[in-house]
């Protein structure tokens, strides 16, 4: 299988999630443009894109929170709309920001959502115990959430999403603003869920998370799904090229402008203090690159040459760095 554009993707009729031609505009701004993708049971699908790319808008339409202008959303073969109460019970949702009640305990938070999802008392009790154990909050289950650390709140935020054993779990940038230790715990939780057969839709602008967690990744920018596929398939879009990252000081924009016209340079961008380049044969090109960049007054502090990754793919597809 090779990386494909969305319109070419083929999905089985009973995918956990199937989106076809989703579009949404806010006034003159078209936030999502004809986005199509599908997720199979037990698969983790990543929507990778920078802030403002259209990830949350896409998810809002998938969840039925936002009415779509065009397109179709099928969850486990059933059409989703804002009034689709039954279909919503198939989805678990973990919002980017904490969506928990700090004046309640973790158990009370879970019991409330268990009621909303129609779990019986016995089922809720056993499921709450399971989930609390999974997210490592069993010993603090009776404490008010407002006494929790940030990481514990994040874990509870995720636990609430998977409480009712959804067929599709949607996580909207769950690690934003999270310390490295809690981030690791979250990623392990998500890994475990997909291992249990749950379909996962995971949005992020962290390339490392998408590479670590996702079976397939859709790259989204400016409301368009630019490409999707496995990591290998996406990287192959870049071709036999190398990725060079140069950390430096000075006018990096001037440095990038100077090297952009070199024949070996395919893509060039600046993010913070780092110049990202996709080049032909880094080993032969590097001396000329460094000479050109330092010639603009940029002081080079470190150089990293690597195989192309999703960052390089994003750069290749959009002409800009993922964290611009």
């Amino acid at each position: 299988m090779t990386a494909t554009t969305p319109d070419q993707s083929a999905a089985p009729a009973t995918s956990a999630l199937r989106c076809e031609g989703l579009s949404k505009s806010f006034g003159d701004l078209q936030a999502v443009k004809n986005v199509s993708f599908h997720i199979e049971r037990g698969e983790t699908y990543g929507l990778l894109g920078p802030n403002g790319a259209g990830k949350t808008t896409t998810i809002s339409m998938v969840c039925g929170v936002l009415a779509r202008d065009e397109g179709e959303v099928l969850v486990d073969g059933q059409s989703m709309s804002s009034g689709s109460v039954d279909v919503k019970s198939l989805i678990g949702y973990v919002p980017q920001d904490l969506a928990i009640y700090p004046d309640l305990t973790a158990s009370e938070n879970m019991r409330f959502f268990a009621r909303l999802y129609g779990l019986s008392r016995n089922d809720a009790n056993s499921r709450i115990d399971e989930v609390l154990d999974t997210i490592g909050l069993s010993d603090r289950a009776g404490d008010l959430v407002k006494t929790y650390s940030g990481g514990m709140k994040r874990r509870l935020n995720i636990g609430l999403g998977m409480l009712h054993r959804p067929k599709l779990l949607i996580l909207d940038e769950p690690t934003v603003g999270v310390d490295p230790q809690s981030r690791n715990a979250i990623l392990e939780n998500v890994d475990q869920l997909s291992g249990e057969g749950m379909a996962v839709l995971y949005t992020t602008h962290y390339m490392e998370e998408a590479e670590r967690l996702c079976d397939r990744v859709g790259i989204i920018d400016e409301g368009e799904l630019k490409a999707e596929g496995t990591r290998r398939e996406l990287v192959s879009l870049v071709g036999e090229h190398d990725r060079i990252q140069i950390e430096g000081a000075g006018d990096l924009e001037a440095g990038v402008a100077a090297v952009r016209d070199l024949p070996a340079v395919r893509e060039a961008s600046v993010a913070g203090q780092v110049i990202s380049l996709i080049v032909n044969e880094a080993r032969n090109t590097l001396p000329e690159l460094l000479s050109t960049i330092t010639g603009t007054g940029v002081q080079v502090r470190s150089i990293d040459v690597a195989e192309p990754d999703l960052e390089a793919v994003f750069l290749h597809l959009t002409g800009k760095a993922l964290r611009d």
Binding site: C63, G64, V65, S82, G83, V85, D86, K88, S89, I91, Y93, P95, D97, L98, A99, I100, Y101, F113, L116, Y117, G118, L160
Partner: peptide, 15 residues
């Protein structure tokens, strides 16, 4: 304000 409305709306809870 607290972001929990979004979670309620995603749940099978009619508005």
């Amino acid at each position: 304000r607290d972001g929990t409305m979004r979670r309620l709306l995603v749940a099978p809870a009619p508005r």
